[in-house]
């Protein structure tokens, strides 16, 4: 839990396991500044499509895989942009293919309040049944709560069986928090989804 006094860094989900020693077969690292996406929101879609299509060459059902990966990447990109504290502070997205899995990680900086909100949300996402969480969030959105819907992240877990993880690293000097968020998809299962 992210609290002012807690000495322990919040690390959740797949970040808690031992990192793989495998070398990625495919690797793309893409860095950008959020203002480009704030100014032209459609760039989220074209970036996600490009990165997804790049990965989809490894699959038989290219269009199907491209669509799934594009949905996942788009969700992560949009969240990283929406919850960035500074429109000119870099965001990065990395997509690694380890043969048996595809890992997609975003890193962005956010304010304490957003970091705390995200911290609580990730814990819920890992602890609760995604179907129930999905319905709960739909109800909240219907009540027009001011928070972002975050249905997208639940959908990734619910519909694509994605494994997720998060790390929140404080940058005390800048009073910001670096949010690491990772989604891992099973390569063998993705064409059958």
């Amino acid at each position: 839990m992210l609290t002012k006094k807690s000495p322990k860094l919040p690390v959740y989900g797949i970040y808690l396991g031992t990192p793989t020693r495998k070398k990625p077969l495919s690797r793309v690292d893409y860095t950008f500044i959020p203002i480009d996406y704030i100014a032209h929101w459609s760039r989220c879609g074209i970036t996600a499509d490009y990165l997804a299509e790049y990965q989809a060459f490894n699959f038989e059902k290219r269009d199907r895989v491209k669509n799934i990966l594009s949905t996942i990447i788009n969700e992560l990109l949009e969240n990283a942009v929406k919850f960035s504290a500074d429109a000119y502070k870099e965001i990065s997205i990395s997509i690694y293919n380890y043969a048996d899995t595809i890992s997609i990680q975003t890193i962005n900086s956010t304010y304490r309040r957003q970091a705390e909100h995200f911290d609580g949300y990730v814990q819920k996402l890992l602890d609760e049944d995604p179907e129930e969480l999905f319905i709960e969030n739909i109800m909240k959105n219907a009540e027009n709560e001011k928070s972002a819907s975050q249905l997208g992240l639940i959908t990734l877990v619910k519909d694509f069986n994605a494994k997720i993880g998060a790390k929140i690293i404080p940058d005390l000097e800048r009073r910001l928090y670096d949010i690491y968020f990772k989604v891992v998809i099973d390569t063998n299962a993705i064409e059958e989804l």
């Binding site: 100014a39 929101w41 459609s42």
Partner: peptide, 28 residues
């Protein structure tokens, strides 16, 4: 001009911009 408008509207109102479409419920 567009980037200045986008920067300020996002900073204060969490709003995004697009030339292709607009969606006031999605804050675009």
């Amino acid at each position: 001009s567009q980037y200045l408008i986008a920067e300020v509207y996002n900073k204060y109102y969490k709003i995004f911009f697009s030339k292709d479409y607009s969606d006031l419920e999605a804050k675009i």
